[in-house]
Amino acid sequence: MGEVSRFWREAVHRYRLVGHRCGNCERTYFPPRDVCPVCHRDSVGKMKEFELSGKGTIESFTVIHEVPSPFVRQRPYILAIVKLDEGPSLTAQIVDVDPGEVEIGKRVSAVFRKIAQQGSSGIIQYGYKFVLD
């Protein structure tokens, strides 16, 4: 679903893990947001891009068996919420590992991978996944 522009719009943030830092309170956010939820209008125009290290810790994870259509060929896959060392958490797959080895608290690093192929358009999307350290 969707046009090509929907996919390249966020590409830089997904390819290089670029988030935002609030110039008012120095809090960090990923994905990027134009308004800091703490500083509100005081943050407007002060949200600065910054690149995350891609290092983090698994907060929780699941092995998905009933998958959405763009991910049918990857079934089953491991999805996690990863807390990045800079503060923000994100949702991403954990790859190159047996599900039995994944645990809450394990250290992970971001890698650049193919995410999914859209059914009708055939567009291949790229972004971050994570591997165990």
Binding site: V67, L79, I115
Partner: peptide
């Protein structure tokens, strides 16, 4: 930022 990476409501 969720579904794009393979998240579903069940996940």
């Amino acid at each position: 930022w969720e579904a794009f990476f393979g998240a579903t409501p069940a996940a």
